[in-house]
């Protein structure tokens, strides 16, 4: 087993264990979506219309929730130092951690989104589209968030600072995610362009995020 997969599996195990953040994101997502009708009103037509946007915003906030622990726990118990000194490039280690984080917190959000869509009166096939755009877009959220997580751990401040730093950078993902979902459900714009741009954002952040995060860790923790 290579070091990469070993780290991936270790992180996934840690996050589904007691005290891990995997289910917290899903729970937070559920609560945000349930709160929305209380703010907006139970008008099902309105909820159906803005449902995809609510699901996207909820997923965006939920995916940020567990991020500040991504490096903080490893920093506290010293395993981050081992990763930095190890033979595996730090960029690769960061990528492994980020993929593990997405698999345990991002993917459950995608899976649960259609169920929450039911409560918002979003149609069956529309929920499929929302889930598809979330599947394409949440990796971008994770890989942008990794940069913020790395910065937060070097400053020994997590939580709110991370959200303040990361949320403005996720605006393009939100724009194209919601636009692609709405285009698929209501039209009249074609689904292709926003969806491909969404995929491009995910791929670009997948390529750049680990490098920026690793640079932040290297410069910040030396």
């Amino acid at each position: 087993m290579s070091a990469f997969t070993a780290l991936l599996i270790r992180d996934m195990r840690l996050s589904v264990r007691v005290g891990g953040g995997a289910l917290m994101g899903v729970l937070f997502f559920l609560i945000v979506v349930v709160m929305m009708p209380f703010a907006i009103g139970p008008d099902l037509n309105l909820l159906a219309r803005i449902g995809p946007a609510i699901l996207w915003l909820g997923a965006l906030l939920a995916s940020l929730l567990a991020l500040d622990r991504l490096f903080a726990t490893d920093y506290e118990d010293g395993s981050l130092d081992l990763l930095m000194m190890g033979r595996m490039p730090l960029e690769l280690a960061v990528a492994a951690k980020a993929i593990a984080h997405w698999l345990t917190t991002g993917l459950p959000l995608v899976v649960i989104a259609p169920v929450l869509g039911l409560m918002l009166n979003v149609e069956m096939n529309a929920m499929g589209w929302v889930a598809l755009t979330l599947l394409a877009g949440t990796p971008a959220l994770t890989f942008i968030g990794v940069i913020g997580a790395a910065l937060a751990v070097t400053l020994r401040r997590g939580g709110l600072l991370l959200a303040v730093l990361v949320l403005p950078l996720t605006i393009p993902v939100l724009i194209f995610g919601v636009a692609a979902a709405n285009a698929a459900i209501m039209g009249p714009q074609p689904f292709g362009p926003p969806f491909t741009i969404l995929c491009a954002l995910s791929l670009a952040s997948f390529a750049l995020g680990p490098f920026a995060a690793a640079a932040a860790l290297r410069h910040g923790l030396e």
Binding site: I147, A150, L151, T154, L155, L165, L208, A212, A216, G220
Partner: peptide, 15 residues
Amino acid sequence: RSSRAAAILALVGAV
């Protein structure tokens, strides 16, 4: 410490 972190953020922002 903060200047390194800020430098990374400035570059990420510039991109």
